[in-house]
Each structure stands twice: as C-alpha cells, then as structure tokens.
Design a protein around this nucleic acid. Structure first.
Length: 135
DNA sequence: GCCAACGTTGGC
DNA sequence: GCCAACGTTGGC
C-alpha cells in the first residue's frame, strides 16, 4: 500500500488541529501535480503530516478517510479534496534536516521538488521514516 | 505556441 | 528578508 506526505503550515493548520478536529477536509490544493497525487489516494492510505515554514518536520501520521471528490472551495470545479483523520503523532518528529542527511531518503519526492504540497512516499521510504521516528 | 514577466511556495 | 524553484499569465 502506497503512502503519501502532505505539507501544512502549522500556523494555518497543524497536526494538533487535526487531532482536535478528529477529521478534516484536505482542500485548497491548486497545483496539478499535487492534485494528481490526491486523486491517486485510496481510502485507508497512510499520510505523513509535515509542518512547513515553522517546524520543518514530519510530525504525525494521518489516514485517508474519503478518497478524492470535487473540492467545494474551487469555483471552477477542477480540483479535488480528500478527507483525513489523525492516526498518531510520531514518537520523535523527523526533521527535514534528518531527511536530507539520510541517503535512503535522498530520492523522496518532497526533497526533489520542494514546493510540492502533496507527494508520494514509497514503502521503503516509509519504513526508514518509521525507524527514524521510533514508531 | 513561445517566452518574458510575474506570483507563490518554502527553505535558509 | 532573500532567493531558488516552478507554475501561470498574457503579449506577440
């Protein structure tokens, strides 16, 4: 089963906010490459939750509770949203610096294309991050 | 259909 | 605050 990574600025919506809400609509993605990844998500897929700008670390795991459907916040109706639920916070957040220093993660999509807000994570990468996080 | 100008994201 | 990366827009 593939997994994914989404970015969020914690000032706007943090992993703690997701835990508090219990479920959220992941909408507002307005980038084609990111939207393709959203569409490829299946219900039940794991999603790593990354804090950009302030934090710069993967801090938790979420799960896709509803696969892609039209994004109600997009007046043109071109983009999609998914629903996410929290699974657990990582015992130890995995920082961007750690990711960049780990050769096994050098090929991660989020590293290679830093502005991509939704990206795929391979099973191998997922396993490395799990180990680094003390999961 | 090309490409310069411009806007946005996100790390540093 | 700066700048690199990259997507989008608009003139031609």
């Amino acid at each position: 089963m593939p997994s994914w990574l989404v970015k969020s600025e914690p000032n706007t919506y943090s992993y703690d906010d997701l835990v508090r809400d219990g479920r959220t609509v992941w909408d507002g993605v307005r980038n084609n490459a990111a939207a393709l990844h959203l569409k490829a998500m299946s219900e039940g897929d794991e999603v790593l939750f990354y804090h950009s700008q302030d934090g710069l670390a993967v801090v938790g795991v979420a799960r896709v509770a509803r696969s892609a459907y039209p994004d109600a916040s997009d007046p043109q109706g071109r983009f999609v949203a998914v629903d996410l639920v929290p699974v657990r916070a990582l015992p130890r957040p995995v920082t961007l610096a750690q990711i960049k220093n780990e050769p096994a993660l050098a090929g991660m999509a989020m590293v290679r294309q830093s502005r991509l807000s939704v990206s795929p994570v391979t099973d191998a990468e997922r396993a490395v991050i799990a180990a680094m996080a003390g999961e």
